[in-house]
Simulated assay, not measured.
Amino acid sequence: MSICTKAEVYTFMQTGDAQRIAANDTMIEALILSVEFMIERFIGRKISATAFDLQLHDGRYCSINGRYIFMNGFYYDILEIGTLEENGVALTEGTDFVIQSPNVIERINTQWNASNQLGIAITGLVGLVYDNSETDEANYVANPDVKQIAIEAVAMKSGLWTKNLTDGDGNEFEVVKQNLPKISMEHLKRYIVPVL
């Protein structure tokens, strides 16, 4: 699922029905994917809930230190662990391990085996999102700050984001917005993945 929809981009730009045509729809949808990729590369995190299936060892997607695995990079924001195996043995959340924070997996009553290269297999979901569900069934939605920046970036790249201005003589003209507000870029920097 993408971080935003074409309808949200059109609404933000206050685009009229005349410009909501198939060609612009296709362009906006492509730009949403492009902007999502660019933001993820810039901040080093997944910005929508993304499934993963990894073989871990110290230095590959994580750091292992005794009882703790510190996930890093795109795998920093752990939402759920589907399966976790160590040396082919399935581990149970709450009995064998717990997720201590978005990126820390703690082994209960023992240490992780860091000597076996690729000895830890893990599947699950990651993403800089939150669960807005009031039930046990998760409903992950985009971080609102990052989503707004993505919408602005898509609008800017589309060439459809315009603003009407008036000069000192009362003449009106239309300006196409061609860059993100500086405050948006500064705000996005707050989400760069911490270096461990």
Rank of each mutant, 00 (worst) to 15 (best):
M1A: 14
S2N: 08
I3M: 00
I3D: 03
T5Q: 06
V9A: 06
Y10I: 09
Y10H: 12
T11I: 11
Q14E: 15
G16L: 09
D17T: 13
A18G: 02
A18F: 06
Q19Y: 09
Q19G: 11
I21L: 14
D25P: 07
D25I: 04
T26L: 11
M27I: 09
E29K: 13
E29M: 09
E29L: 12
E29G: 07
L33R: 12
L33M: 11
S34T: 15
S34P: 04
V35S: 06
E36K: 04
F37P: 01
I39L: 02
R41S: 14
F42N: 09
F42M: 08
F42V: 07
I47H: 05
S48H: 03
S48V: 06
D53I: 00
L56V: 00
H57S: 14
S63D: 12
I69R: 06
F70E: 00
F70M: 10
Y75I: 07
Y76P: 04
I78Y: 06
I78A: 03
E80R: 08
E80L: 02
I81G: 02
L84D: 02
N87Q: 13
G88M: 08
L91M: 05
L91G: 06
T92P: 04
T92N: 01
E93D: 07
G94A: 08
D96M: 00
V98P: 01
I99C: 01
I99W: 05
Q100I: 05
S101V: 04
R107A: 12
N109D: 14
N113T: 05
L118R: 11
I120D: 08
I122R: 05
G124C: 00
L128F: 05
L128M: 01
N132C: 03
S133M: 10
S133F: 08
E134W: 00
D136S: 10
E137K: 02
A138D: 13
A138N: 13
P144F: 06
D145S: 04
D145Q: 05
Q148G: 10
A150P: 05
A150C: 04
I151L: 01
A153V: 00
V154G: 04
V154I: 08
M156F: 08
G159S: 12
W161Y: 15
T162M: 00
L165M: 14
G168R: 13
G170C: 05
N171L: 12
V175W: 03
V175C: 03
V176L: 11
P181E: 13
S184A: 15
S184V: 00
L188Y: 02
K189D: 12
K189T: 01
R190S: 13
Y191K: 01
